[in-house]
């Protein structure tokens, strides 16, 4: 297991390098001069040339790449063309907001999805099974923006139970330490603010978690059905084990192997693709941040945003692979 982990982590290095290179080249392949963009339409030719030189854009691409890599190693992602702030300072609060939201959404999706799938498989062709599969089908088919708006209308406006938008109560702003507000409020020991953060997370968390939940429930059900037909489950029953033990111990561990893959993929998607949810719930996440950067052609920000999301995806895949090896002893490379 240890040597597998080391090898698998070692394999990350070329993947990450390749990824940085592709993102770097892609941005440069887009036509248009960044200096022109910064200075605007009215800028003189001389000023543009000067800025181009100042930005290092006259250097050959490999020199630029080396400089860029040097910056990355020092945590320097460059500067935003729009705000003139270092991107690393701007990006983290947005990323933290997205991570927090995706985390809550995945917790909801995994806990409900996996259990619903298990019980559906256990009680195959029962009313519970039909009900869960119908809800899962609706969950997959439902447009997230519509569902988010319905949540806001019924839960926030009609029933006035939870806040509609944002991460915090604007009248009592949270002092950011890590920018993960759940963590920050706990560190500060401010319990009422923690409750406030949880309240803000519930609606967008459910909206974002519904599709993964439905996918996970269906995947778990079909995987469990497959496993429960197998010979070793018959062996377990022949030993006189109780059904809960047969289902939750003997079947689940085997059935989780494909489910873990799906959970990993969904988690990666949530981190990058939560723009709809973020927009509806006024969530200052990374999706909104990149969307704004694209609108204003803020290339360094786009580049950094893509890089960060891609890196997260790679790391989630690493975790999935390590989980595989932890679940399935047959996996040894």
């Amino acid at each position: 297991m240890l040597s597998y982990t080391i090898r698998r982590v070692g394999q990350l290095i070329p993947v990450l390098l390749g990824m940085v290179f592709i993102v770097f080249m892609m941005i440069r392949a887009i036509p248009g001069n960044p200096a022109q963009l910064i200075l605007g339409q009215q800028a003189s030719k001389q000023a543009i040339e000067e800025l181009t030189k100042q930005l290092g854009l006259t250097e050959p691409w490999y020199t630029q790449f080396v400089e860029y890599m040097k910056g990355l190693f020092q945590g320097d992602l460059g500067m935003s063309l729009k705000t003139r702030n270092p991107i690393s300072d701007e990006l983290w609060p947005h990323l933290a907001a997205t991570i927090e939201l995706a985390f809550v959404a995945m917790i909801i999706a995994v806990i409900i999805g996996v259990n619903a799938g298990i019980i559906s498989a256990w009680l195959q062709n029962s009313w519970f099974d039909y009900g869960v599969m119908l809800i899962a089908l609706i969950g997959i088919s439902m447009p997230i923006f519509w569902f988010g708006l319905m949540e806001q209308y019924f839960v926030s406006i009609q029933l006035d139970l939870l806040p509609t938008t944002g991460r915090e109560d604007v009248r009592a702003p949270i002092e950011a330490i890590t920018n993960l507000y759940l963590l920050d409020t706990l560190i500060q020991g401010n319990f009422s603010q923690f409750i406030e953060v949880v309240k803000h997370l519930i609606l967008p968390g459910i909206a974002l978690g519904t599709i993964p939940m439905a996918i996970i429930a269906r995947m778990t059900r079909s995987s469990m059905l497959e496993v429960m037909k197998s010979d070793y489950i018959r062996t377990a029953r022949a030993k006189g084990l109780k059904m809960p033990l047969v289902v939750y111990k003997h079947s689940l561990k085997n059935a989780m192997i494909p489910v873990v893959t799906v959970i990993g993929l969904q988690a990666g998607l949530l981190l990058g693709g939560a723009i709809l949810t973020e927009t509806i719930f006024g969530w200052p996440g990374i999706g909104t941040y990149i969307y704004d950067a694209i609108s204003s052609r803020d290339y360094p920000v786009i580049q950094s945003g893509i890089l960060v999301i891609a890196t997260l995806f790679v790391f989630i895949n690493l975790i999935v692979d390590l989980l595989y090896a932890a679940i399935d002893p047959r996996i040894k490379y």
């Binding site: 197998s230 010979d231 070793y232 489950i233 018959r234 062996t235 377990a236 029953r237 022949a238 030993k239 006189g240 084990l241 109780k242 003997h250 561990k253 085997n254 679940i327 399935d328 002893p329 047959r330």
Partner: peptide, 25 residues
């Protein structure tokens, strides 16, 4: 009652040894 007898007083061996043991335990 069946559970208390199964695996205790009546045990069973199956045809396929390759698939009759749980691969993850």
């Amino acid at each position: 009652k069946m559970r208390s007898i199964r695996g205790n007083e009546i045990a069973m061996i199956f045809q396929e040894p390759m698939t009759s043991l749980n691969p993850v335990f």
